[in-house]
């Protein structure tokens, strides 16, 4: 079972509170999750706190699920940060700005564990 979705990233208060606290569990909790509405979660048969895998043309990342009823059907949100960065589009289309929003994504339930910030960065060096 998977969900075709449109991915966006963005700010949250808790992500902001932990911007200078990035090695902490609090930062993981604040920025390492994927939000969707309960209808979409129902399609995936996952509960809040279960891990999901978000995959785009640019990468994939495993994060726990959160419910946000403000999201319309098919819209998923990961706070800006290393977890979101794993799946965003580096192409700036010649204007300097990568694609952080509006990226086609597929969400699947997974038994894999979510990486820490350090684990994500370690993949890149």
């Amino acid at each position: 079972m998977d969900l075709k979705a449109t991915f966006i990233s963005g700010r949250t208060v808790d992500q902001g509170c932990n911007l200078e606290n990035k090695t902490s569990k609090a930062y993981f909790d604040a920025a390492g999750y994927c939000e969707m509405n309960s209808a979409d979660a129902g399609k995936l048969c996952v509960e809040p706190g279960n891990n999901v895998k978000v995959t785009t043309d640019f990468g994939s990342v495993v994060v726990p699920l959160k419910i946000c009823e403000g999201n319309p059907d098919g819209l998923i949100f990961i706070p800006m940060g290393p977890w979101a960065n794993a799946v965003v589009d580096p192409n700036t289309c010649g204007c300097g700005m990568p694609g952080f929003k509006g990226i086609p994504a597929v969400v699947t339930p997974t038994g894999e564990t979510a990486p820490t910030m350090q684990q994500l960065m370690a993949r890149l060096k």
């Binding site: 940060g81 290393p82 960065n85 794993a86 580096p90 910030m117 994500l120 060096k125």
Partner: peptide, 13 residues
Amino acid sequence: GAHFPAQSIARMG
């Protein structure tokens, strides 16, 4: 490191 796409950061690596 926290706010660039992973592929950009990989170049920094």
